[in-house]
């Protein structure tokens, strides 16, 4: 296995770092959620790549001997995607209410208001 053989995992690492960096560095609450999403997507890709078997197809029994990809990680990640969607929805809902309460979605401006009040 060379660099090319690990290609999906390189994508995972890059996506993970990009997402993590956005979460940490951005002060905009919506951008933070997007960063969080990218971070989570990297994990989805990681699981999907893990289950892939070279030359394998979807595990549907057709009678002839075939190699199959491992369906378990794919199923697991369906669950994780659902969790991710729920988290994003809740996060954005919170941002909407923060915007209504503070009039801004910039972290530093919110902090200014909190230290004043």
């Amino acid at each position: 296995m060379t660099l090319a053989g690990h290609f999906p995992y390189w994508i995972v690492v890059v996506l993970m770092m990009v997402g993590f960096y956005v979460v940490i560095s951005h002060g905009n609450l919506v951008k933070k959620i997007i960063g969080l999403n990218v971070f989570q997507v990297s994990v989805f890709v990681f699981y999907i790549a893990m289950g892939k078997v070279e030359g394998g197809t979807a595990p549907i029994l057709t009678g002839q001997p075939e190699t199959f990809s491992n369906p378990v990680p794919h199923v697991l990640i369906l669950t994780a995607i659902v969790v991710g969607v729920a988290t994003t929805a809740l996060g954005l809902a919170l941002v909407v209410r923060i915007r209504a309460a503070y009039g801004t979605i910039e972290e530093d401006e919110i902090e200014d208001q909190e230290t004043e009040g």
Partner: peptide, 27 residues
């Protein structure tokens, strides 16, 4: 209290990172 919203948001971000780290480990 409106500060509960920002507290919940912050917890959401950090909690999700924690949980995602956990599934990376499980994976």
């Amino acid at each position: 209290d409106r500060r509960s919203l920002t507290a919940a948001y912050r917890y959401l971000i950090m909690g999700t990172i924690g949980a995602t780290f956990y599934i990376i480990g499980v994976g």
